[in-house]
């Protein structure tokens, strides 16, 4: 019986007649580009959610897009992404380079790159972005290898996928 009560709360909180975004979703786009022999990764997340998560995890106050925005915040974004995102190319773990971030409305875009990939058969991604503080977070992950497009919805419990 008690279980039924569990989500009364979460459910009712989402009833308001106005929705700032009210759903928890990020988008990760992975693209292998033959010409540059690199895997290009663009991730977008909701600004307020990523700010909440980083503020809690690192005891900071980011104040994104305000005059009081924490300087050098790329250090924290890089650290966070390195903790939450892991890639394997042809079953070998690969590090990514954090190129930078940009803001667009209520979204933050991150640009990451894995260089010196002459060829590949598979990419494995483990994606734990925002799932710690937002249990309902969904991380839509799309991958383009050659002409093949694939996408999968990753969650707190199902957090990794292999693209072939």
């Amino acid at each position: 019986m008690k279980l039924n009560k569990t989500f009364l709360l979460l459910f009712i909180i989402s009833f308001l007649s106005f929705t700032p975004h009210k759903y928890y979703l990020s988008l990760t786009q992975i693209n292998y580009k033959t010409e540059s022999k690199s895997i290009q990764i663009i991730i977008n997340v909701f600004m307020d959610d990523i700010e909440t998560a980083l503020n809690k995890d690192y005891a900071i106050d980011l104040q994104l897009t305000t005059k009081k925005e924490l300087k050098n915040n790329d250090v924290f974004f890089k650290k966070y992404l390195k903790e939450k995102l892991h890639f394997k190319v042809d079953e070998i773990a690969k590090n990514f380079t954090y190129i930078g971030k940009e803001y667009d409305g209520d979204l933050v875009y991150f640009y990451l790159e894995i260089e010196n990939i002459n060829q590949l058969k598979t990419i494995e991604i483990t994606n734990n972005i925002l799932t710690k503080h937002f249990p309902k977070q969904q991380n839509l992950t799309k991958c383009k290898l050659g002409e093949k497009h694939k996408s999968i919805l990753l969650t707190q419990t199902e957090n990794s996928a292999i693209f072939k």
């Binding site: 693209n31 580009k33 540059s36 290009q40 663009i42 190129i99 930078g100 940009e102 640009y111 790159e113």
Partner: peptide, 11 residues
């Protein structure tokens, strides 16, 4: 150039 490369060049 795609969105990624435009950004990388800018940075």
């Amino acid at each position: 150039t795609n969105k990624f490369e435009t950004f990388k060049t800018k940075i």
